[in-house]
Amino acid sequence: MIEVTDLTKAFEDLRRGPVLAVDHVSFEVHSGEIYGLLGPNGAGKTTCLRILSTVLKPTSGRAVIAGYDVAEHPEKVRANIGFMSGNTGIYDRMTAWEMVEYYGRLYGIDEATLQARLEEIFNTLQMNEIRDLLGSKMSTGMKQKVSIARTIVHDPPVLIFDEPTSGLDVLVARAVLLAIDYLREKGKCIIFSTHIMREVEKLCDRVAVIHKGRILDSGTVEELEARHQQPDMEELFFELIRRHDEELIQGGVGIAEGV
């Protein structure tokens, strides 16, 4: 469902000059699978997922979602994904119902289907009591529910979650994770980024450790642990990052010596 090949994104940075925020990243995600992107802040997770959601354009490389290339058919891609991140807020001056309904209409769902779908989602996510509550009056948990409802209103085959639990209390975070798990069971293709190891261990079928724009290693949690002889995900993660930074320094020295 998601095929990413050699995806690269370059930025201009005032301090550092041109920077590769995403550096030749490749991976695949299939239906009914949760793929985790695990990395510290600034690793390039958000940039990578923004490219997948067509908000950013790749500098080079390809990403194909549900059969559509993100650079060539961005509208088709957007119609087939649900995207949720810390940056996708909800409107203050709209009620929960209006907000989800509005996005449903933007997806071009016909009115009868949309109303039925809204009822279904509001029931499943237990949102009926905040139906007519304005966004500005909602708690973080309620907002997150509205966001999830907004993400799945058009029943997309591909879902992208960019650190969906960041800044949430444990109860809400758990609810969000349960919702994602439920979506996998419904056969969705899900990509999920986080910097929290436990979430990865609990939820992801496969995981990629990403640091400084590069995927350091990927596979199932068990595979990775076996490959690097580390007992748990946390140790593994730090080990990978440490090794990569060392390589970078050595590489830098090597280049300096070469000159």
């Binding site: 957007r78 996708t88 807020g89 909800i90 933007l106």
Partner: peptide, 9 residues
């Protein structure tokens, strides 16, 4: 809310 709108169709 800008990004929310940007990822809509």
């Amino acid at each position: 809310t800008m990004e929310t709108l940007l990822i809509s169709p």
